[in-house]
Amino acid sequence: MQLPALQRLSRRWSLEYSLDQHGISFATMLDRVQDKGPLILAIMDTNGQVFGAYVSEPFKPCIGAYGSGECFLWRVRTGQATPTVEVFHWTGKNDYTIVTEHNFLAIGVDNGKFGLWLDGEFERGVSAACSTFDNPPLATDSEAFECARLEVWSIQ
């Protein structure tokens, strides 16, 4: 994966939140990642597709957007001899890298479209083409997807 230079040197990754271990709670996820980061968000949808985001700072309830140009979206491409990770870096076209409200999380926002959006129950999501990262939809079947697994890892 194409992590920023300092995070590539890190040898310590810590699982901060998992649907399997910590239950379905947006508040619990926010509490568990408080003051930790950067973070890797990893999602597997019900079709077995794996994708997510790298964010430069912890998710937090906030009015407006936050995060830096180090944020990016990613997806695992299968169908080849060896699966590869495809990365979509911040384009600089807008500053809407992370938006976290009480009932959703979004990474990349552009004219009502989200690079990656998750509802507050981590059941459903949407991934659409977004100029923040110039990404295609991360889930391959359609823009909408259902979460099967979700994890948030901190890099220290």
Rank of each mutant, 00 (worst) to 15 (best):
D20T: 10
D20P: 08
Q21V: 15
Q21M: 14
H22P: 08
H22E: 15
G23V: 00
F26N: 08
F26M: 09
F26K: 13
A27F: 15
R32N: 12
R32Q: 14
Q34D: 15
Q34I: 05
D35E: 11
D35Q: 11
G37K: 10
P38S: 02
L39D: 11
L39E: 10
L39A: 02
I40C: 00
L41I: 03
A42R: 12
A42P: 04
A42M: 14
M44Y: 10
M44L: 09
M44I: 09
D45K: 03
D45N: 02
G48N: 07
G48H: 07
Q49G: 15
Q49F: 10
V50A: 05
V50C: 08
V50F: 07
V50N: 13
F51P: 06
F51Q: 06
F51I: 04
F51M: 12
F51K: 04
G52K: 02
A53N: 07
A53D: 05
A53S: 07
Y54R: 01
Y54V: 01
V55E: 04
S56R: 06
E57H: 04
E57N: 06
P58Q: 07
P61I: 15
P61V: 11
C62P: 08
I63H: 14
I63Q: 11
I63Y: 15
Y66R: 04
Y66A: 00
S68T: 13
G69T: 07
G69V: 11
G69L: 08
E70R: 12
F72S: 05
L73P: 09
W74V: 02
V76N: 09
R77I: 13
R77V: 14
R77A: 14
T78W: 07
T78Y: 10
G79M: 00
G79C: 00
A81V: 15
A81S: 14
T84N: 13
T84E: 08
E86A: 08
V87I: 06
F88N: 03
H89G: 09
W90Q: 14
W90L: 13
T91Q: 01
T91F: 01
K93Y: 08
K93S: 09
N94G: 02
N94D: 09
N94I: 12
Y96A: 11
T100A: 11
H102S: 13
N103L: 07
N103W: 13
N103C: 09
N103Y: 12
F104Q: 15
L105M: 09
L105K: 15
A106F: 03
I107N: 07
G108I: 01
G108Y: 03
G108D: 00
G108A: 05
N111T: 12
G112A: 02
K113M: 14
F114K: 13
F114V: 07
G115A: 01
G115T: 09
L116T: 03
L116P: 02
W117Y: 08
W117R: 10
W117E: 06
D119N: 08
D119M: 05
D119I: 06
G120H: 06
G120C: 05
E121A: 14
E121N: 13
F122K: 00
E123V: 10
E123W: 14
R124Q: 14
V126G: 07
S127D: 03
A128Y: 15
A129L: 15
T132C: 03
T132I: 05
T132V: 03
F133H: 06
N135A: 06
P136S: 12
P137C: 04
L138V: 00
L138W: 02
A139S: 07
